[in-house]
């Protein structure tokens, strides 16, 4: 994954538009949207992860814009980001409950009562 992104960056895809994830239950998919301003072309890189212990390497040293995207993704999907120091949570304190955007997050359950 890092190799592909490196290659894209050297080919002018240096504008990172988005980093996000989708939970397909059997696997997690991380999506990177990159853009080449000179060629006006967009490329999408997808990485599949194991949902039991999802981990992915940071791309912050190549794309500084990934900072908050990665933090939000790791918070919302419980994906560990390897290679960057841990920072406080960005949006909300979850206190160990299931990551909210995973499909395993029970909809309508009153977590505050527990």
């Amino acid at each position: 994954m890092l190799k592909t992104l490196d290659e894209l960056k050297t080919n002018g895809y240096d504008y990172l538009k988005d980093v996000t994830a989708v939970d397909y239950v059997t696997y997690l998919e991380v999506v990177y949207i990159l853009y080449n301003i000179k060629l006006s072309r967009e490329e999408i890189v997808k990485v599949q992860l194991d949902p039991k212990n999802p981990k992915i390497h940071t791309i912050m040293d190549k794309f500084p814009a990934a900072d908050w995207y990665e933090r939000e993704m790791s918070e919302m999907f419980g994906i560990g980001i390897v290679g960057r120091r841990a920072k406080r949570l960005l949006l909300e304190e979850w206190n160990g409950i299931s990551p909210p955007l995973r499909k395993s997050f029970a909809w309508g359950k009153d977590y505050a009562k527990e």
């Binding site: 538009k17 988005d18 996000t20 989708v22 939970d23 999506v31 949207i33 814009a65 900072d67 908050w68 995207y69 939000e72 955007l101």
Partner: peptide, 29 residues
């Protein structure tokens, strides 16, 4: 700025919808 919606559609509702906000990233800058 540029708003992007990344949607995985399902039959009657989105399976996953991602709202990429231009302001979120301006503030991180």
């Amino acid at each position: 700025g540029e708003g992007i919606i990344y949607m995985v559609p399902d039959k009657q509702k989105p399976y996953r919808i991602r709202l990429r906000s231009p302001v979120f990233i301006s503030l991180s800058a």
